[in-house]
Amino acid sequence: MAAEGDKFVYDPERNYDDATLAQIRVMENEIASQNNIVSERLSMQNLKDEYADADDVFKLKIKDLESRYHYMRRTRGDGNCFYRAFGFACLEMFLADSKNLPRFKDVAQKSRDELVSLGFPQFTIEDFHESFMDVIEKIEKQCSVTELSDIFNNQGLSDYIVVYLRLLVSGYLQKEAEFFVNFIEGERTVKEFCNQEVEPMGKESDHIHIIALTSTLGIPVRVEYMDRVDSSKCTQHNFPEDSQPSIVLLYRPGHYDILYSR
């Protein structure tokens, strides 16, 4: 009907999937072309600019962040941001202070056999484990922050690291399944949750993922929550609660970036 000229009319004989997926691809490419996977260090002014037109809740919270943090590093919003932010911040920390690096390397080294014993296919695990250890060896040899940044901005290498961190999370959740089953929504087993929400690329991370990764690697992290909650300060949360983390991530609903303390 002519009167319905602009109105969407569903045609059951047509396939809309192609168009929808093409649209999703365009959005993904846009995100990819606009941002580095992990950015340079940016001053907090950069965050301020982003919220120039925002309301007071955000402005006050940025002021709060500015008083405690000097710089930030942005990560690409592709659903893997938590892993990239955590991975980068963690390895960068070891470049500055390698005291705990041998312990970290040892944990990473042993993780391969643990994952294989949980039933992950050996040769895919080996593949990802190898490239993860390669990066740790580069850190041991005191590569520059620029080199680390190059690794994280190389899509292939960067994704290899993300996959291994995802596998570590999955492995820990499955090992401690009896505990974590209480925190999983829907009628799913821990294994199903891992298959659906942890192992596939691009699946976003929640508290449970953070708890698993920080616990399995023994690297505590602080998260600053900047959301719409009516308060003049960001909410802080340490994982685990009684720790003194040297890594800080900024969380805004759906996204993680890295923060650097003053």
């Binding site: 296919p121 895919t124 996959v163 995802r166 298959n195 659906q196 192992e199 596939p200």
Partner: peptide
């Protein structure tokens, strides 16, 4: 089959 799209993970393989 969900592992062919949404639930695909790079840790899976032709065999799996």
């Amino acid at each position: 089959l969900s592992i062919l799209t949404d639930d695909w993970s790079p840790a899976l393989s032709v065999t799996s």
